[in-house]
Design a binder for these strands. Sequence first.
DNA 1: TTGTAGGCGTTATCAT
DNA 2: ATGATAACGCCTACAA
Lengths: 341, 341
Amino acid sequence: MDKPSVTSADVARLAGVSQSTVSRSFDSSSRISDGTRQKVFAAADELGYQVNKAAQTMIKKRSDLVGLVTAGLADPFRSEFLNSLVLEIQNNGLRPMVIDVSDTHTIDVQLQSLIQYQLSGVIITSGTPSEAVAKTFIKRGTPVVLVNRADHSSEADIVNLDNEKAGALAAEALMKAGKRKLMVVRSKVASYSSVKRTKGFLDKLSPFVKQGSISLEEAFCETGNYHGGAQFGADLLASKHYPDGVFFCMDCIACGFLDALKQSNTLAVPTDIAVIGCDDISIARYQSYDLTTVRQSPQKMAAAAVSALQKRLKQPNTKPIQQKVSVELVFRGTLTESNTL
Amino acid sequence: MDKPSVTSADVARLAGVSQSTVSRSFDSSSRISDGTRQKVFAAADELGYQVNKAAQTMIKKRSDLVGLVTAGLADPFRSEFLNSLVLEIQNNGLRPMVIDVSDTHTIDVQLQSLIQYQLSGVIITSGTPSEAVAKTFIKRGTPVVLVNRADHSSEADIVNLDNEKAGALAAEALMKAGKRKLMVVRSKVASYSSVKRTKGFLDKLSPFVKQGSISLEEAFCETGNYHGGAQFGADLLASKHYPDGVFFCMDCIACGFLDALKQSNTLAVPTDIAVIGCDDISIARYQSYDLTTVRQSPQKMAAAAVSALQKRLKQPNTKPIQQKVSVELVFRGTLTESNTL
DNA sequence: TTGTAGGCGTTATCAT
DNA sequence: ATGATAACGCCTACAA
């Protein structure tokens, strides 16, 4: 059943040229006479020839694979982001290989083994590799791009959302709406993004807290998803100690919280309590939530990550680039713009 | 900056053995004396040696990459399914390469180009390749697994959800609940799954329709997502011609529909109108929707797809396998089990 | 512009 | 059990 695959030598024979001419015909930067190239393409078409990437990789010491390191793909924002990354990688003539590191303590071992693939780069969206492992790649000439992982690293390029700005925008909007008993909520398990968003929120408000014009509380939910938010909401209602404005570091948590409120019917949104989320996942637009949120663009994040990777491939020795992607506040039902006027 | 990568020859030199011994040491099926293997591993560790997959692929004529063909990854069910597939592939010692074919009319060209990668297999979850292209792979010894694409194909292995059973279960439940004016809704753009689910629903009910004991209507929404469902709901309410039980071929459409109902407050769920979805995406469990639905297990689907692929790799010449994965009805708020007693 | 020839790092075959 | 050697298919000097 196994048909021997057709090689450039086969094409060469049929086209009546040398094997190297065939090879060159498929390299757009090689100068080949028009006639020859035509002949070669015709022969290649006839035989159904496709370049063997493995052989190509051996010579060039680089495959066209990009490692996409993530912990799961089903989380709402994550799936949107990975979707954008896959498209962006594909549009750059590269191929995404997905590596799931949900088992986060094995990340270094898993990354090490990626050396086998002569990757064109690694984009890390979950987990943080040790400096040593990151260096292994960079020394080999394999770009490493960290997305929302840290502020600076000795060697890797970095793309971060403007997380602090996100927190600050939420804080501002709640202030303008006249809310005075504020709260910021993130998952107990700290992520870089959540910590930064929280910090942005707190920093923006700290002068007012000092003045005593507002009260401010930092709170945590058990898990960074819908159910964590729902649980958090139920607990808060039970405590009978309510804020009048809350910023959630992730939309999905905010949605869970809103559902908890809805069920108890104790507090009206946004009059009694305003809610702001972060990310603008598609669920935030659902009528049941209609969540005011700080939007980030997965497309912009993906484009920034891939372009950082490409730049590094072209100029391996320039110093690491650190980039911040902008955010914007989107008003919906859980804090309307008119509230803030 | 580019450090020359360490090869098995380097390891051999350090370990004081031949290069082939190093190669064999990393092949568990090769018999090597314990002492030698220890030496080799020690040397490999010291140098940070990793097998070069490109070279390996050249010889074996097969990489450990599995092509995962999909149209987008952000749709709720799709992201859960791909998540399971990625994990399953990884746990089988393979690597997932994602190919986005949102641009569905280019699928044949895109698939052809995958020949370049000497894949261990291709799992197609979106789009349907032409017979000719599928054959190209299979002739090469590259397994092709179609997931929810068709009933039979000349050569490829097939994994389908038991889509008809899904429709039938929904129909039964609505009948038992005493609903008599039934409707089934799917996206205007037909997908294999939706068509089969609809068929299962209609077939189950057709005897009763003939008897005249129930009325049954087939309807379509513009898009196969939340917004399609919301739009559909608004239109239905405007028409003032209401069914008392509806089966949606996808959960996300059902959620949009429920939100439209909620907004108008005309019909109570499930008393005036019962709603059943399909897939059991995580949103179906959200309190705002609490959707009764026909559950499918992405894990089971993924396991079936990958195991079909593995079997085919081991036994290339057995005839195509076709497999159906079971479904189960999950009662929640939009049609409670007590309704059906 | 085109052809010739060497080598990329591995596995597999054949000796030993 | 281990070592030597020949592929695998391509790219890239170098030569013509």
